[in-house]
Amino acid sequence: MSSRGIYTLANDAVYDQFIGLINSIEANVSPEIPIYVIPYNQHCDRVKREIDTRKNVIFYENKESIDRWDAFTEEVWAAHPITKQASFKRPKWYKSPLMRKMTAFDGPAEEFVFYDADSLAMQPLDKVFAKLREYDFVFDDWEHAKATPVAAFDFSLVQQDLGLLESEARTKIHCSSFFGSKRGLLNAQDQVVLKQHLIQNQEIAWINEKSWWCDADLFSYLTLRLDRPTFNFTLSTDGQDRTGNCANIDPFVVRDHLLYNKDGLKPIHRLHYMGYSSIEFARLSQGEAVQIPYAEVFLHYRFLKNPVEKPRSLKSPSPVVRFNRFMNKAATKVSATLENLVSQQN
């Protein structure tokens, strides 16, 4: 059997979510499968200390691959037509190193599954690895169903250049928060060719300007261009395969700390806390009442190894604390707006 592993991307800012993820993997996937942690940035001291206590968790820092993917990301996004507009708004994920997750393709595992750190594993990965016998990329998300104005691609350009109708191109769109693949499928040679398509041939314009610096939509372009066999469970002909995964959108039923799709009680691969900040999870882990769905499920996995530290009750922050947070948030928003204005003038 080929070597298998799991990858995630983390730093100290997402420490609580990181602990919840690796605990859920050990509980619901396997206590033996290697978990490789790619550094989001240099701030990983707490993460490293936790890794040192785990026999199956490895800090995976391939600096050559990280530098190569960082440079690739910078270069291709700098070529997007939006940068030539007189006025454009930087998205909140601007300049984020999320494409570092692609270093998994240079890692030790021959077959692997990647989870974003803001996730909880909910079932074994047997079905994903089984699909990797037939396909090179395996996904489980609904990105392909987004409305046309906010979808990953400018479908008119994709049709013009590739001859793909929107209905065909949509099936190529996917998220980057959870995927299965194989070592070497996205290598340095592929990057050279893809960069030529993206920059010299201006195929970076295929990606919706609303998706500027979005790692998921850039990844969708890469798999589209590589034209390798791809499977998405949400497009499966088997209705049992099609489930939700987003904590703030999809309805689930909780049984013994596991989530099931409310429609048909179908097991899900993971719960994705998309759109919630790491600060909210840190506060929740410290015993604050935070508006996060399935908070008790998260706390179960966050403190699975040390249940005595789990908050016994959750308390709302005082009015003073809420006011100070509101003012800090407003100041941050004003600062970001001013930074955008300055960057547009330069």
Results as ranks from 00 to 15, higher is better:
Met1Glu: 14
Ser2Gly: 04
Ser3His: 10
Gly5Arg: 09
Tyr7Cys: 02
Thr8Gly: 01
Tyr15Trp: 06
Asp16Leu: 00
Ile19Phe: 00
Gly20Asn: 03
Pro31Ala: 13
Ile35Tyr: 07
Ile38Tyr: 11
Asn41Cys: 02
Val47Arg: 08
Val47Gln: 06
Ile51Asn: 05
Thr53Met: 12
Thr53Cys: 12
Asn56Leu: 01
Trp69Val: 04
Phe72Met: 06
Phe72Ser: 08
Lys89Gln: 11
Tyr94Trp: 15
Lys95His: 14
Met99Asn: 15
Arg100Thr: 09
Thr103Ser: 14
Glu111Gln: 15
Glu111Asp: 12
Phe114Glu: 12
Asp116Asn: 10
Ala117Val: 12
Ser119Cys: 13
Ser119Leu: 02
Leu120Cys: 07
Leu125Cys: 04
Leu125Pro: 01
Lys127Ala: 15
Glu143Pro: 00
His144Ser: 10
Pro149Ser: 03
Val150Ser: 11
Ala152Trp: 08
Ala152Thr: 08
Phe153Asp: 09
Asp161Cys: 03
Leu164Gln: 04
Thr171Leu: 08
Ser177Pro: 00
Ser177Ile: 01
Phe178Gln: 00
Lys182Phe: 03
Leu185Ile: 02
Leu185Ala: 01
Leu185Gly: 00
Asn187Trp: 00
Gln191His: 05
Leu194Asn: 03
Lys195Tyr: 03
Trp206Thr: 01
Lys210Val: 14
Trp213Arg: 07
Thr223His: 04
Leu224Val: 02
Arg225Tyr: 08
Thr230Cys: 01
Ser236His: 03
Gln240His: 13
Cys246Trp: 13
Phe252Trp: 07
Val254Lys: 09
Arg255Gln: 15
Asn261Pro: 13
Ile268Cys: 07
His272Gly: 05
Phe281Thr: 04
Ala282Asn: 06
Arg283Gln: 15
Gln286Arg: 10
Tyr294Ile: 07
Ala295Leu: 02
Ala295Glu: 03
Tyr301Gln: 06
Arg302Met: 11
Leu304Ser: 10
Val320Trp: 12
Asn324Trp: 14
Asn324Gln: 15
Met327Tyr: 13
Met327Gly: 07
Val334Thr: 03
Ala336Cys: 09
Gln344His: 10
Asn346Leu: 11
